[in-house]
Amino acid sequence: MKVAYWPGCVSRGFTPELHGSMAKIAPLLDIELVALDRASCCGAGVIAEHNPELADTLNARTFALAQQAEGTALMMNICSTCQGAQSECQERLDASAEYRAKINETLAADGLTYETGLSNKNFLWLLVEEMGLDELRSRVVRPLTDLRVGPFYGCYIVRPVTRLGIDDAHPRDAYLGQVIEALGGTVTDYAGAHKCCGFPIITMNKDASLKQAGRHLGDAVDAGADCLVTPCPLCHLNLDLQQPLAERVVGRDLGMPVLHLPQLVGLALGVSPSELGLQRHVVKPTSVIDWTTSVVGEVGAPSAGG
């Protein structure tokens, strides 16, 4: 499958291991990535808060570039926040031909046009809806047996449900659990799976922001999770990078590793933890998961596993 690939900003900036691990596993899933390296930041809701037309125009430019990418079936992103921010703009662009024409007028100077009908899916949605869980399961070479994984979605990819196309036929707010199981892992239920990591207010109300991160991490610890998995690099910043500060705010040790979705998939596909950049996290998954006894551990030493 050939997709117009939008990696986003943070996946190449402060969480480079996300873009890196996606690039590593794409060939193993027969996904051909046509990178949209001319596209701009989605605005993460902040540009839309400043001026909706500006966010709509920037993202219409991205959509237009994706529609130009030859032979691609759809556009794929690897960031919950990109998904939500772009879906919001796309909803406005698709709602009115008159408004769309106004936006396209601005894009015309550079020879670009956005037409309705572009499908933009997060890697998570693509795994379940385009590839299918059975196909994913068939590609697993090292099932994540005995690994207890807590899903952490990120707000932008689960709400509002109508905008994001979540319904009985597309339970996109349950896909992480389905993917964890398809990879052979065990889903850990805990209170925070669909809650907010707190990142958007880290500069405005740091205490409340870290309390959110700390509370959800703590809930996952109490529920017995070995690690969390998230499709959102911004959540990753608050849950992993800021975890030492969150520990201080909530007054308890957490030590909860947080994996990017492509990293978790990569482990099950037999890619080594270091190739997936797991050693780059602030909370090292290698120090928490017992890599010597768990089946996942064999990934670190493929020769031992045969």
Binding site: S40, N51, R92, S96, K102, D110
Partner: peptide, 29 residues
């Protein structure tokens, strides 16, 4: 591409009045 992005900024922010397309007010086609 930076030049394209900048031009979009200048066009949109250069308007006399901010354009706010609100689906609640305008409805959908």
């Amino acid at each position: 591409d930076r030049a394209e992005v900048k031009r979009i900024y200048e066009t949109v922010e250069g308007r006399d009045e901010r354009v706010e397309f609100n689906i609640y007010i305008s409805g959908r086609d």
